[in-house]
């Protein structure tokens, strides 16, 4: 059996009836294969190959909620923990629409950023804001930038009722893997906002082209390539249109970061159809005003409690 990680190769003569278990990070970082050849050469001897059987064990999950937890742990939290530094280096600019929204918030209003990533949207808010982030490595980066942050899950936060004036949740809702969890996340926003408080929620849109035919900055080319993985989710190819609403999106990152196994960087995304976020916000209750707009490959919700 041959193992490979970031240019390191390692061959191992597995004894008959032996079992080899890859655990933890090794499951992602090492690839393994049985090279196709007729003979092996253990300790300088020639040995003809006979039948070899490889069994891969996987656990199937029936329960939707358990499946959602596993998807979001393995394909959202763990991936962001893994790519945190590279991801942060590529996310330094505020999206203009978010900046416009944040700039209008009075300096005595309290802002909570649910899923704050590396804290780029809190840099201007500073003392009158608080971030919540699922990935502890991204939260660490916030801390290093002197941004007030806690590690938490935005569908079940530790925040008190009606504690803040403004909530932003930018590019977070598309990482929730079930309708129920998307609604829970919106309900949490409603619960922590004071009456009259405002929220801005953005997510990726399935549609990467506007009506005028202008392609979003993200999807410049259309050369979709179909590929699937063990989770039976299509793997999205950068700068193409989405082929399904539930997809895995690889994180490319910087050149130095490219050496490790790309499978460790697949993030789960649910990309939205027009009006979908709006109907979820209606289902969440709490909101007296709900507006949805499309902007550059994203749907944006503006909510008022």
């Amino acid at each position: 059996m041959d193992f490979q990680r970031a240019g390191n190769k390692f061959s191992c003569d597995l004894k008959q009836r032996s079992l080899l278990i890859l655990t933890g990070e090794s499951r992602y970082s090492w690839t393994h294969q049985i090279t196709a050849r007729k003979n092996d050469f253990p300790n300088g001897n020639v040995r003809q190959r006979r039948n070899r059987i490889s069994l891969t064990f996987r656990r199937c999950v029936d329960d939707e909620e358990e499946a959602a937890r596993i998807i979001e742990k393995n394909l959202v939290k763990n991936v962001y923990d893994h790519i945190a530094d590279d991801f942060s280096a590529s996310r330094y600019k505020m999206w203009p629409l978010v900046e416009e929204f944040v700039d209008k918030v009075p300096k005595d209003h309290f802002v909570i950023d649910l899923g704050c990533g590396n804290g780029k949207n809190l840099l201007k808010i500073r003392d009158h804001g608080l971030g919540l982030e699922l990935s502890s490595n991204l939260a660490r980066i916030c801390g290093e930038r002197n941004i007030e942050v806690s590690v938490g899950d935005c569908t079940k936060t530790q925040l008190r009722d009606e504690i803040c004036d403004v909530v932003i949740s930018i590019a977070v809702l598309h990482h929730m893997s079930t309708v129920k969890r998307r609604i829970e996340a919106l309900k949490e926003i409603g619960r922590i906002l004071r009456p009259g408080g405002k929220a801005m929620v953005t997510s990726w849109a399935m549609k990467q082209k506007s009506e005028k035919g202008k392609t979003s900055n993200y999807a410049k080319k259309e050369n979709s390539e179909k590929s699937t993985n063990s989770a039976h989710l299509p793997i999205h190819k950068a700068r193409t249109n989405f082929e399904a609403q539930d997809v895995l999106v690889p994180f490319k990152g910087s050149k130095e970061g490219k050496s490790t196994d790309p499978a460790a960087k697949h993030r789960f995304y649910h990309v939205f159809m027009e009006g979908e976020m709006k109907s979820l916000a209606l289902a969440a209750g709490y909101f007296s005003e709900i507006e949805e707009i499309y902007d550059d490959g994203n749907y944006v919700l503006f909510l008022r409690k």
């Binding site: 699922l134 939260a139 660490r140 916030c142 801390g143 806690s150 590690v151 938490g152 899950d153 079940k156």
Partner: peptide, 8 residues
């Protein structure tokens, strides 16, 4: 490092 971990 000043960061509460509130994950359940």
């Amino acid at each position: 490092n000043g960061i509460p971990n509130m994950l359940l």
